[in-house]
Amino acid sequence: MNTPGLTSVVVVLADSGPFTRECVDHALASDVPVEVIVVDNGSTDCVPESLDRAYAGDDRVRVVYNRANLGFGPAVNRGAAQARGERLLILNPDCLVEPDTIARMSAHIDVHTGIVGAVVCDNEGHPDPASRRRDPLLARALRTKLGLAGDAGIDIQGPIPSGAEEVEIVSGAIMLIPRQVFDRLAGFDETYFLHCEDMDLCRRARDAGYRVVLSGDVRVLHGKGGSSRHRPVFVSRHKHRSMYLWFRRHDPSARNPFVRWAVWLGIWSHFLLKIPGQLMRKPR
């Protein structure tokens, strides 16, 4: 049974590094009631165990051990299954929220709202274009890749408004979702192991009649994934697989078998071409 007024913060780990402790501390400092559910995908860096010890006396924090890397979406779903809040905040372990972040994002929720995102920024305060995007349909993706997009590409041009803006996609680094909406959508699609599951959830929310909203007045520091830096080829492989999966499920052009084959070939060729550079940059 959901607890009125409570927000359940779900944080997924996969060798995400010590920055996670700061992420949890910031979430617990929220000026609204929260619980934090940390879901570990088989980390070997001992961070989940250290969090378990550090918050042993705080019943607002729970650590869930999967003992294997199930993928991001499946891990969120398992955390959500244990959540008691009427709202879920999906939060990357390298994101830092401010005390009023959840309250300000919640202010944009009404009966028609399915997902609320925030403006994720790098260490210098520059907004990530992925904070708000359009569906990566094939025509849009090609125009963006060729530099011909303008206002018809994936990225949304122009300044970010200071209030709510209805968009097609918000970043999965931070998503606030009413529990009843999450349950109606059956959570994240678990066939996505990593990447694009946020785009899929936003698309399915819109298809179900809900609005996806960017909270343009909320900025969140995003440190850009420690897990990705340690396993770049692994992450890239799943990212490219998820890109094709999203295309097959949501892009009308995928109905054409020739186009479908060409997109498959293009995606996996791009993956292979990136491997040498990723191996050279891989941390030792």
Results as ranks from 00 to 15, higher is better:
residue 7 T to E: 02
residue 12 V to A: 01
residue 12 V to H: 00
residue 15 D to P: 05
residue 15 D to L: 02
residue 18 P to W: 10
residue 19 F to N: 14
residue 21 R to I: 13
residue 25 D to T: 15
residue 27 A to Q: 00
residue 28 L to W: 03
residue 31 D to V: 12
residue 37 I to F: 08
residue 43 S to C: 09
residue 45 D to S: 09
residue 48 P to L: 07
residue 49 E to T: 13
residue 58 D to I: 11
residue 62 R to F: 08
residue 63 V to W: 02
residue 63 V to H: 03
residue 73 G to M: 02
residue 74 P to C: 08
residue 75 A to K: 00
residue 75 A to V: 06
residue 76 V to E: 00
residue 79 G to N: 05
residue 83 A to E: 01
residue 84 R to E: 15
residue 84 R to V: 13
residue 88 L to F: 12
residue 89 L to E: 01
residue 93 P to N: 11
residue 104 R to S: 05
residue 107 A to V: 07
residue 111 V to M: 13
residue 116 V to K: 06
residue 118 A to I: 08
residue 118 A to L: 03
residue 118 A to P: 06
residue 120 V to D: 05
residue 125 G to Q: 06
residue 125 G to A: 07
residue 127 P to D: 09
residue 129 P to C: 14
residue 130 A to T: 12
residue 132 R to L: 03
residue 139 A to N: 11
residue 141 A to L: 08
residue 145 K to V: 13
residue 156 I to W: 06
residue 167 V to Q: 02
residue 169 I to V: 15
residue 172 G to R: 03
residue 177 I to G: 00
residue 178 P to H: 02
residue 178 P to Q: 06
residue 180 Q to S: 15
residue 185 L to A: 05
residue 188 F to N: 00
residue 189 D to H: 01
residue 191 T to L: 01
residue 192 Y to V: 03
residue 192 Y to W: 09
residue 193 F to G: 00
residue 199 M to G: 02
residue 202 C to G: 06
residue 204 R to N: 09
residue 207 D to K: 12
residue 210 Y to H: 13
residue 212 V to R: 03
residue 213 V to E: 07
residue 218 V to I: 10
residue 219 R to C: 07
residue 221 L to H: 08
residue 221 L to M: 11
residue 223 G to W: 02
residue 225 G to P: 01
residue 231 R to N: 12
residue 234 F to K: 09
residue 237 R to W: 11
residue 239 K to F: 14
residue 241 R to T: 06
residue 241 R to I: 10
residue 242 S to D: 07
residue 247 F to T: 00
residue 254 A to Q: 09
residue 255 R to N: 12
residue 258 F to R: 13
residue 259 V to M: 12
residue 260 R to F: 04
residue 261 W to H: 14
residue 262 A to S: 15
residue 264 W to A: 05
residue 271 F to W: 05
residue 280 M to L: 14
